[in-house]
Amino acid sequence: MEFKLISIASIIAFYGCYFLKMFHQKRQGIQTDQIGKDKIGFVKFVEITMKIAAILVFIAGLVSIFLETGNSLTAIRIIGAITSVGGTVIFIVALWTMRDSWRAGVSKTDKTELITNGIYHISRNPAFLGFDLLYIGTLLMFFNWILCFLTVFAVIMYHLQIVNVEENFLLVAFGNEYLQYKKKVCRYVGRRK
C-alpha cells in the first residue's frame, strides 16, 4: 500500500507541476506545447512518437499502480520508490530553473535563453532525466512486461528527442555558447573537466 501511495503522490506532484507550469505560461501568452508543431520529416516523427510513448507509459503506469501488479522484492520496490521520488524532484527543480524558457518540444519562433545554472550546471537535460526516473521507478515498484516495454520505449524516444531534435536546435539557436556548455556538462548527469 505504501508503494501505491508513493507512486500516486509522485505522479500527482510531477504532472501537477507540469500542467501548472503550462497554465502559468499560457496566461503569459506562451505556447508551451510545441511537440510536432511546425516540424517535418524525422523531427516531427520523433516528437509525435515521443508524445505517444509518454501517454502510453503514463496510462500503463496508472493501471499497474491501481492493479498493484508486480511481485518484486521489497528492496527493488524501495529502490523504485526512491527513483520515482528523485525523478519528480529533479523534474520540478528543472522546470523551476528554466523559468519561462521551458517548452515541451522545441520552438523555432520563441526566443528563449540558454539555461546553464542551477541543476543545469550538472545536467543538460534534467527534465528528461526526471521523466526517465519517474517511469523507471514506477516500473521497479509495479513490474509487468507491458509497463517494461512501454518504459523502455519512452526512455528511447526521450533520448532520440534529445539527440536528434533538442541538441540540434540548441546548436542553431545558441551556437558557440551551447558548444562550450556541451563540452562542460554531460547529457544526463555530471560535469567534464
Rank of each mutant, 00 (worst) to 15 (best):
I55M: 11
T151A: 06
I8A: 05
I11E: 02
G41N: 07
Q28V: 03
G87N: 10
C186A: 11
G118W: 11
V46P: 02
G190W: 09
V57H: 10
S84T: 12
V57D: 10
C17K: 12
V93D: 10
F169I: 07
K111N: 09
T151C: 12
Q25G: 08
S123P: 05
I119V: 12
T32M: 09
W96F: 15
N144Y: 01
F149G: 09
L139H: 01
K182N: 04
L139Q: 00
M50W: 06
L73E: 07
R124G: 07
Y15I: 01
L133V: 03
V172W: 03
A60K: 13
L20Q: 14
I30H: 13
I48T: 02
M50D: 07
L56C: 14
V163H: 10
A94G: 13
N125F: 08
A104K: 01
T88K: 13
I30W: 11
G70A: 06
G105H: 06
I65W: 08
V89D: 14
I136C: 06
I76H: 03
V106W: 02
A173I: 02
Y188Q: 07
D33N: 15
G137A: 04
D38T: 01
V152I: 14
M50Q: 10
G61N: 12
F91Q: 10
Y178S: 03
H121D: 06
I48M: 10
G29A: 09
W102R: 04
I82L: 15
V43E: 14
L150M: 13
G175L: 00
I65K: 08
V57M: 13
I79M: 12
H121N: 12
R192M: 01
L160Y: 03
A60N: 14
K4P: 04
A81G: 15
I8S: 07
V63Q: 02
E113P: 10
F143M: 06
I122N: 00
A54Q: 14
F153V: 00
G61V: 10
K183W: 00
R192A: 03
L95Y: 02
C17F: 07
D110L: 13
I119S: 02
M157H: 08
K44I: 00
R27Y: 06
I65C: 11
F45P: 03
D38A: 04
I35W: 03
K193E: 00
C148Y: 12
I30G: 14
K39S: 02
A53M: 15
Q161E: 05
L56K: 09
P126M: 08
I136E: 05
G118D: 03
K21T: 10
Y181G: 04
I76L: 15
Q31W: 08
K108R: 14
K37T: 11
T112W: 07
I156G: 01
N168R: 15
I92A: 15
E113N: 11
G105E: 05
I162M: 05
F45Q: 09
F153N: 12
L129P: 02
G175T: 03
G130T: 08
Q31L: 13
A173K: 14
G80N: 08
S7C: 11
F66I: 04
F149Q: 00
Q34R: 09
E47I: 06
V163Y: 04
K21R: 13
V63W: 05
V155E: 01
Q161S: 02
Q31P: 04
D33P: 11
T109Y: 09
I92W: 15
A154I: 03
T97Q: 15
T112E: 12
